[in-house]
Design a protein around this nucleic acid. Structure first.
Lengths: 294, 294
DNA sequence: CATATGTTTCTTATGTATAAAAAACCAGGG
DNA sequence: CCCTGGTTTTTTATACATAAGAAACATATG
C-alpha cells in the first residue's frame, strides 16, 4: 500500500512553521497551510490531528493554538519522507556506480526488486523513467541491458550539451537590457562569489549551483527538449560525483571560476567572448568527467 | 494476466514459413525456428503444438512434417497480436489527436484506464514512457497535464531537429569513400525512386521511408541522444499525419523530391550544397507541420 | 559428445487490491 | 454569498497475484 511520506514531509515542514511563531499564537487556516506546505488539505488535516495528539497544538472550535514548541526529535527522519520510488532511484544509482554493474550487464527487474526490497512494479516504473538518461536499453520481453557509464556515454552527452549551451549562450548577445533574465544572472553571480568565499566549508554545495546555473542559461529561450536534457546532465553530475570525490574541492573551484568568466562574457554581449568562455568551460567539464570515468 | 500476443504473432509468422515449404516437408529444429521467429523456444513449442492440434503438421518422434497448407483464415487478427501496452499507445494517440484533449487538459490515469478498458498499471507505465515526447508533464502526486500538440511544440521540436540533422548531414562531406554508409545511401535513393514511380498507389508508405531516411543520416556519427530524439520525430509524423490527410499525396511527393536533392548533395560532399538542401527540406517540413496544426 | 527435445524454474506483462492523498461536495458562520 | 472546516468520493502509489514467455537444466538420440 501507499506509504505516508507526504504526510511525514508535511509534518516536518509544519514543525518549522510552528517554530517561527510563538506560544499561544493561532495557526493560519487549513487552506492557507495547504498552500504553504504544498500538499492537499486532507494531508494538512492529518498533520494538524497529529500535532494535536502530541499536545503541540490545541484544536478549539474553528481555530488551532500553539501550546508548546515541538522538539526536533519529533521530526521524522529523512528516509521516511522519501517516496519508495525516490528510494529506488538512490538504490539503483548506488548499485550502478558502486560498480556492481559493468557495461552489458543484464538488468533483471525481479532481482532488483528483491535486492532493493520493493515491489517489482516500482522497479519497472523506475526503469521506464530512467531510460531517458541513455544508460539502459529495453529489450522486448526480456528485461533491460545496462549500457555502462562509459567514455562514449560522456562524449555523446557532451556533444549534445555543447550544441544546446552554445546556442543558448549566444542568444544572450541579443537579449534586451529589459529582460528579467539579467537580474537572475546577477543573482547567480552573487551566489557563486558567496560560495567561492566559503569554498573550503561548502564545496559540496556546488553541484546544485552548477545545475541552477546551466538551467538559467538555457532558459533564455525555452525549449522543452533542451530543458529535459538538463535533467540528464544534472543526474550525471549529481550522482557520478558522489562516487568520485577525488580533487572535489579543487575541481569545483575551477568550475566556479569558469562560470564567473562566462557570466562576464554574457554581460559583455560580445559573441566571440561568449563563445570562447562557454566552449572552454564545457571542454574542461568534459575532460574532468572523462578523467573520473577511467 | 499476461496476454498471449507473442504466441499469436509467432503463430502467424509460422504460417508464412510453412507456406514457403511444400507438403510433406520437414520443419527445421525448434532452435532454428526460435531464431527465425525471434521468440523463445517455449513459444515455438506452443506454436508447434497448436499447429499439430489443427492438423497442419504431424509431430512424429523428433520431427514435424507439414501435412496440409494452413489457410489464411487461421491467422490471428492483427489486433490480437499487439501487446496491451501497444494498444494503449494507439488508443491514447487517438484520444489525443481526435481532439478530445486541448492544451492544459488534466490527464487522469484512472479515467483513461476505464476509457481504454485496461488496468491502471499499464496506463501509468505508458504515460511514464510517453513523457519523453514532451507532450505531457507529470505533477507530483496529482497525475499529468497534457501540454498540447501546439505550434510551440512543433517549433521547439524543429529547433532541435535542425541542430541534429544539420550536424549529421555536414559530416557526410568528410565521410571516406570506404564507409559502408554510402551503400545504404544508394539503397535508400533507390527506395525513394521506386516509391515515386508508384506514388499514386503507395503514397501512404512514405511515413516509414521518411523515418528510415532521417535515421540513416543521423547514424553517420552515432549518438544515443540524437537517436532517441528520432523516436520523437517518428512518433509525430507517424501519428499526426494519420489524422491530417489533407494533401497527403502532394506533400509526400514534395518531400521525396527534397530527400533526393539532399541525397545528391550528400554525395557531392560539398558542405554548402548539403547545408542548403538540408535546411530547405527541414524548413519545408516545419511549415507543413505548422500548417496542419492550425 | 553434440545437438534436439522434454522438463523445471525464473522473469515479465498485466490484472486486482488497498491505504494514502487529492479533489469534490456540503453545511454553517461572518 | 465567500471562506472555513467537516464529509464523501475519486485518484494515485504501491503491493501482490498469476498466466505467458524466457531461460536454465536434464535427458535422450544419432
Amino acid at each position: 500500500m501507499r506509504t505516508d511520506t507526504t504526510f511525514k514531509r508535511a509534518f516536518n515542514d509544519m514543525i518549522d512553521i510552528i517554530r517561527t511563531s510563538g506560544l499561544g499564537e493561532e495557526l493560519p487556516s487549513e487552506n492557507a497551510l495547504r498552500a504553504q506546505l504544498g500538499v492537499s488539505r486532507t494531508t494538512v488535516r492529518k498533520v494538524l490531528a497529529a500535532m494535536s495528539a502530541r499536545g503541540i497544538i490545541i484544536s478549539e472550535a474553528h481555530r488551532r493554538i500553539i501550546r508548546e514548541q515541538p522538539r526536533q526529535i519529533e521530526r521524522y527522519p529523512k528516509e521516511e519522507t522519501l517516496a519508495i520510488s525516490e528510494q529506488v532511484e538512490t538504490s539503483f544509482m548506488e548499485w550502478m556506480l558502486r560498480g556492481d554493474a559493468c557495461p552489458g550487464t543484464e538488468i533483471n527487474e525481479a532481482e532488483l526488486a528483491r535486492k532493493f526490497g520493493v515491489a517489482t512494479t516500482i522497479v519497472r516504473e523506475f526503469l521506464n523513467r530512467f531510460q531517458k538518461y541513455g544508460l539502459i536499453e529495453r529489450r522486448q520481453n526480456a528485461g533491460w541491458v545496462f549500457k555502462g557509464f562509459t567514455a562514449s556515454f560522456a562524449l555523446e552527452l557532451f556533444e549534445i550539451r555543447e550544441m544546446f549551451e552554445m546556442r543558448s549562450a549566444r542568444l544572450f548577445a541579443t537579449l534586451p537590457d529589459s529582460s528579467p533574465i539579467w537580474k537572475q544572472v546577477r543573482a547567480i553571480r552573487a551566489a557563486h562569489l558567496e560560495l567561492l568565499a566559503d569554498i573550503d566549508a561548502r564545496f559540496q554545495d556546488f553541484s546544485e549551483l552548477d545545475s541552477r546555473f546551466h538551467r538559467l542559461i538555457v532558459a533564455v529561450a525555452p525549449n522543452r527538449f533542451i530543458e529535459s536534457f538538463q535533467d540528464v546532465i544534472a543526474m550525471v553530475f549529481h550522482y557520478h560525483y558522489q562516487w568520485n570525490k577525488r580533487d572535489e574541492r579543487a575541481r569545483n573551484e575551477v568550475a566556479i571560476g569558469e562560470h564567473l568568466a562566462l557570466i562576464d562574457a554574457l554581460e559583455s554581449r560580445n559573441v566571440a567572448l561568449i563563445d570562447h568562455a562557454c566552449r572552454s568551460h564545457l571542454t574542461s567539464a568534459r575532460e574532468t568527467l572523462l578523467h573520473s570515468i577511467v
